[in-house]
Every structure is written in C-alpha cells, then in structure tokens.
Amino acid sequence: MTEFLEKVGLTSQMFTSIIITIVLCVLAIIAGKRIQTIPSGFQNIVEMSIEKLYGFFEGVMGKYLCKKYFPLIATFFIYILFSNYIGLLPAAGHVPGLAAPTSTVNCTAAMALVAFIAMIGIGIYEHHGLGYFKHWFEPFVFLFPLMVLEDLVKPVSLTLRLYGNVFGEETVATAFFNMVPIGLPVIMQLLAVLMSLIQAFVFALLAAIYITEACPEEEHL
C-alpha cells in the first residue's frame, strides 16, 4: 500500500483527505437528492445537525453574515471533524494510508490560509472598498506595525493550534502504546474523541469570529 502511494506521489495524509472529500461529497449528494418538505430518514439527520450548527453560528456572527458565509465555516467544521476522527479508526497508526490529514502541518496551513484570505476578502467586500484597512491605523497611527502583526499572526496560530493538538495527541497515544500496549491507550483515545470535536469547533469558531471582526457593525451593513 505504501509503495503504491509513493509511486503515485501521494502521502498517507493526502490519501485520507481525498477519501474524506469523496465520502462527504457522496453524503451531501445523497442527502440533497430528493429534498422533501417533511424530511425522513437520512435527510432528517443531516438537516437536524446542520440546523444546530447554523443556530450556533448565527449567535456568533449575527443573522446577515451567518446567512452569507455559513457554508465556508460549516465546511471547515465538518471537514476537520471527519479528519480528526479518521485517526481514531482501529489500527489507524499501523495501516499505511490511514493517518489523520490534520496531523500534518500542510493540511492545517492550507485551511488557515483559506480562512485568512476569506477574512481579508470578505472584509474588503463588506466595507465596499479599501475602508477595511482603516482598522490598521486605529486608534493611533503609530500602532500600525502592531495591528498588522496581529492580523498576520492569526493564520499562524490557527495552523499551529490544530496541527499541534492532533499531532501531539497521536504522539502521546503512540508513547502510551509503547509503554503498556493494553488498556492505557484507551484513556488517550477517549480523550481524543472529546478533543477532536473541540478542536474542530475551535477552528470553525475562530474563523467565524475573525470574519465577523473584519466586517463593519451589523447596523451599518
């Protein structure tokens, strides 16, 4: 399996992220194929979870922004959640081609860059012009370097937080496994179930807050 992946030029993480993308696309197509007014079965489950997510982010971002940019945020959340949980599958560390995509810095950096560019793009769009960059010179002009630095640090901290959490947790689980193979790793795996959800949640929440901060106050929209 590893040789095959190497021959094609894919790493294990790329392989899993492609699988996750395909699975999510298929699930979305199945759920949205025959939309009924009175949902049943699978459509019911999907609708309920998306509605819960929407309700939460509406409270964070406000009605107008949430309606417009919810798809981006929800995509972050769902993709990271699936990526984190694929590392929990049995033998995920031993079978090559089954590693969590978020356990490599490339994947998280790409997502953080998308969030960063979205933040600036949406900020410029919602301010109808370059008025967005005014906040770099407020409240004082001489704080300019500090404000720019504050913006530039955002994608870096998003990247390192997610990567460090997932990678660190996997490393600790491996260390536990090497010490006591039976029993002890289960504790770490249980913790990982909780941590994966929280990390996906934190990434999406921070992206939502950054986008909200980049936009003018709700009354001015």
Partner: peptide, 9 residues
C-alpha cells in the same frame, strides 16, 4: 472554550 483555545495555543 474560546478562551481555552487561546491559552492552549
């Protein structure tokens, strides 16, 4: 949880 995320980083 949001505050935790900042501290945790």
């Amino acid at each position: 949880i949001l505050a935790f995320a900042f501290m945790e980083s």
